[in-house]
Design a protein around this nucleic acid. Structure first.
Lengths: 385, 385
DNA sequence: AGCCTTCGGAGATACGTTTCTCCAAGAGTG
DNA sequence: CACTCTTGGAGAAACGTATCTCCGAAGGCT
């Protein structure tokens, strides 16, 4: 039994054996009250520096580590943020499957840590019992489907939710998304300027916002410029289906002379399909795809890609969420959250605040008829340093 | 004020406004005691099914969600597992930077979730205050450096730690690693059989276990077969340095006719370097590199890779950790953890239990002089389905 | 009839903090 | 001297759950 526990007069019968030192032990050892210890360690209250440092030293000596669980219970803050990615197909996660998710998650983790929060990776399926078992201060949801029951449940129970991807019909505290329409229009214009006469699209069958908005933008553009739409769809989560769809697109009688692929692997798939049909890129076929992968910088030829800037998105999403958690209204310091708890905030205030982030088109040889000058270091003979 | 809170007689003065329903509210609404509610919901105690279902129904109706914080405080279990990856260079994480980490993390997340735990991504630097703020049941550490203070601290405070990568000098509950020596020897034999006369190595400057063991295995093999070692080292976290080192290796007067690269990007780097020197792969240069990326299946030519099977590793690590947390001794059901808390378990019992996992060599064209028959679908004319 | 066992459940305590309230002693002030 | 104000700190009440202990009642057995 600890001497401190003895003095504190708490457990007279049960002897706490080798447990970690608690705040009581520190208080007893330093000859002060628990209040003083708490204040000293947390920098609150009014204490002379001498007491503060003495308490800190005693705590250090005893190896005192405050119990996160107790603190969470008392303060209602866990410092934990959920990160949820919608699941496609059998696998529980597409997490880190595509470069976009991986980079976004990394940026989000980093941003959260920078503000003292940690990220918990959670499945989108609410049946996993783990959801109820974790005290979350808020949640980031990537690409929530319409009417997501999980998001509704979270929001209803007062947990702030910020989504990456404009939510369909579920209530969120805030959302961040790319300006997909502008991105697609920009690409179509870019291809037109490069000489494309008939631009095709490789798109997905699912109904998520990204796919929907991008496809609509394409169709709208076609209607405006008077081009017959030329597109193929496939289930985006199935890599094999992508190659087949790429092949299908180039096999059409009205074969396009330029293609934009909405998903990461489309670039290599389209390149392979073009090769099979003996089409030269960019001479016979202009190519652009949406990807965060840098392999497209070294393909033959390098492929123009659209970056959704996942790092920026991840950072923004997390910062928005933490702002909501801490009740900061973008720097005004007004404690909005306390005045209007989340469950009431949208009542009558219209749609939740959304932020549109710009994308970046990384132009490479595949989308330029006149291929840009590439810097190639000349081969050096062996032996030369 | 809730009627239940009124009846319970607890807070007579302060009115709890719109807070979530607690276990007391459920008890009051169901006309039973708190004990009964807890037992009914957790499937403990001895209760008739009628009471159990009635309580469950009331809880459901009230939207009762047990407080994770309170449960954690009471039971000492949070259901949270830390996932730490050592940081190289400036970036806070290499998390998901390499395919190995990404896949390993995904498998670990999945395995944890399957057993009712969630993963928290944490930085390896202990100065981040977030470490002390989270109740962790255990931690997975990827590739801990020798004498890692963080691991020591965790282990000392009784938190089980399982590492991916054989730990140098820090005490862990268990560890999992590949049999790097066997893997390297296997590759060297494979290259020899393919006709290699002088095998080179592209390796790293850092002292982590993987780099060290692999390099030592190479040197040992060289000594055994009487080949002069031919290798170049570079800081593995610097992508640009890899290309330079690859170039250096092929520029040597004693240029190797086969190379094994220890890191993921080495394949493309070596391929590019070979091209610069006019070396044909595999005719003039045999190539193997360690990578989880499937881009090497489609390079020109496809490159033979060594897979460390990160999914298997991630799953094993997590299961080992949870076994330790729950005190399960690999199925015997003996509660070892309770009998011997972690801090005493290594006293005299020698090194912590380690598991060596096999690797997999994925043989492709780059390491075979007689290139294997490749199945290439002949180009189909457009219009044909 | 008396005793033992099982059933169904209530009471109370502990988990380890944070924080609200309050108090004693000294210091300044009229 | 009587008073207020400030300083430094103590006491105790939560936070919401799990669980240990105990108890009455009903039935079974000798």
């Amino acid at each position: 039994m600890t001497a401190a526990a003895n003095q504190s007069g708490r457990r007279p019968t049960t002897s706490r054996r080798l447990e970690r030192a608690g705040i009581r032990d520190v208080a007893a050892a330093a000859g002060v009250s628990i209040t003083t210890v708490s204040d000293a360690l947390n920098g609150k209250g009014r204490l002379p520096d001498e007491t503060r440092s003495r308490v800190r030293e005693v705590a250090e000596r005893l190896g005192y580590r405050p119990s996160a669980a107790a603190r969470t219970l008392r303060t209602g803050r866990s410092g934990l943020i959920g990160l949820t990615v919608t699941t496609y197909g059998e696998e529980p996660f597409t997490f880190t499957e595509f470069a976009y998710f991986a980079e976004m998650a990394r940026a989000a983790t980093s941003a959260a840590l920078g503000r003292g929060y940690a990220l918990v990776v959670l499945p989108a399926s609410s049946r996993h019992d783990v959801w109820g078992n974790i005290a979350l201060d808020g949640t980031v949801v990537i690409d929530p489907p319409d009417q997501d029951p999980l998001v509704s449940e979270l929001y209803r129970s007062g947990v702030p939710v910020v989504s990456d991807g404009k939510p369909g019909n579920c209530p969120v505290t805030a959302w961040v998304d790319n300006d997909h329409e502008a991105a697609v229009l920009g690409i179509l214009d870019h291809l037109s300027e490069a000489g494309a006469r008939r631009i095709g699209l490789l798109t997905g069958t699912s109904t998520d916002t990204y796919t929907r908005l991008s496809t609509e933008a394409y169709l709208g553009w076609c209607a405006k410029v008077g081009q017959e739409p030329v597109y193929e769809t496939y289930p985006a989560h199935d890599p094999a289906a992508g190659a087949v769809a790429a092949d299908r697109l180039l096999a059409r009688p009205d074969r396009p002379d330029a293609v934009y692929g909405l998903f990461d692997p489309n670039g290599t798939d389209l390149l392979a399909a073009a090769r099979r049909y003996g089409l030269r890129v960019p001479e016979d076929l202009l190519l652009v795809c949406c990807s965060e992968s840098d392999v497209y910088a070294t393909t033959e030829p390098p492929i123009t890609t659209l970056s959704l800037k996942p790092r920026k998105i991840g950072t923004t999403v997390v910062n928005l969420l933490i702002d909501a958690i801490e009740g900061v209204d973008s720097g005004t310091g007004v404690d909005i959250a306390r005045l209007f708890p989340p469950r009431f905030r949208t009542a009558g205030t219209g749609p939740p605040p959304g932020t549109l982030m710009p994308t970046e088109l990384i132009v490479r040889a595949s989308s330029q008829r006149r291929s840009p000058r590439t810097t190639v270091s000349p081969p050096r003979p062996p032996g030369e340093v």
